Amino acid sequence: MDVRRLRILVELSRLGSMRAVAEELGTTTSTVSQQVAALAREVGAALVEPVGRNVRLTPAGLRLAHHGIGILAAVEAARLDLDPHAEPAGLVAVAGFASAVRRSLLPVVRDLGTTHPGVQVLIHEYEPIEALDLLAGDDVDLALVYDYNLAPLSFPADVVATPLWQVDWGLGVPAGEGPRTGTADLAAYVDRSWIANSRNTADEDVVRTLASLVGFSPRITHRIDSLELVEDLIEDGHGVGLLPMAWRGGPGVRVLPLAEPGALLRAYAVVRRGRTDWPPLRLLLERVAEAG
């Protein structure tokens, strides 16, 4: 069904005459008549009938015009949604790890509620590999992921990764352990249980790499996703594990700096290549990158 012809029919139902429609659309009465006739052939029903020297819509024409109002509105909404120059509006789905959601996304979402209320953001918490899989399947529009200098991510060729921020990680140990100054002596923890992430192998790769540099293979006993729970296990003496150097937990845990090469977590905002022409995604990505 030709949308242009449908628009003419909707205008005819609104204005009541072909002459008025022609004036409204800047065309001729003959053209309006021809387009209505062509639409009638498309749908297989008479859409207008003569009334004196004028015409009126038949019951079928009235029903189609009623449908046409919604159809034309949907077409216009789709056009605006895809127009790279349109005002950003729409639903953007984001998958990301908790720290990036708190640090980079939530402040932006709060601000967009005031500056661009037409942009809505759905937030899903996922680890990097999970988030990238969702992005690849078009289940989300934006992925907030991380890697480490000792366990770098290999991004697919069809995505664009924008660096956001970096955080140094250290060794979390019970309060009272470790040197007062200097870096952690990892060899001192060769016989201890170690804690790694339950949902991302990169954390374990970093632990194993750091341990290998001082000559041992760590005994990873606990696999925990929540950093708060990692802290609890360390405080209760169930093992040691990596935590951000800026971690501000309770007094029962210390975070010791690591010797070179250290462990540097790097956060990224990732989108499918070519997708940032969509205004709400472009806006969200720009704001998240600015927030750092």
Rank of each mutant, 00 (worst) to 15 (best):
M1A: 13
V3M: 11
L9A: 10
E11M: 09
L12T: 00
R14T: 14
L15R: 14
A20I: 00
A22D: 04
E23N: 10
E24A: 15
V32W: 00
S33T: 08
Q35H: 14
A37I: 01
A40C: 08
R41A: 15
A46H: 10
G61Q: 12
H67D: 12
G68H: 06
G68K: 09
L72C: 02
L72G: 00
A74H: 05
A77N: 01
D81Y: 02
D83S: 10
A86L: 02
P88D: 10
A89N: 01
L91G: 02
L91R: 14
A95Y: 08
G96I: 00
A98I: 03
S99Q: 11
A100R: 03
H116E: 14
G118K: 13
G118I: 04
V119G: 13
H124D: 15
E125P: 07
E125F: 07
E125A: 12
A131N: 04
A136M: 12
L144T: 01
L144P: 11
D147A: 07
D147I: 09
D147C: 04
N149S: 15
N149G: 15
L153M: 13
S154T: 15
P156K: 08
V159Q: 07
V160K: 03
V160G: 01
A161D: 08
G170M: 11
V173L: 06
V173N: 09
G176K: 08
E177I: 05
E177R: 12
P179W: 12
T181V: 15
D185T: 14
R192D: 15
N197S: 15
S198Y: 11
R199C: 03
V207F: 05
L210F: 10
S212A: 14
F216K: 07
P218W: 07
I220Q: 04
T221F: 05
I224H: 06
D232L: 13
D236M: 09
D236G: 07
G239Q: 04
V240R: 09
G241T: 11
P244H: 05
A246I: 08
V253L: 08
P257E: 04
L258V: 05
E260N: 02
E260F: 01
L264M: 10
Y268D: 04
Y268M: 04
V270S: 03
W278A: 06
P279Y: 03
L285A: 07
L285V: 15
R287C: 05
V288A: 02
A289K: 04
E290P: 01
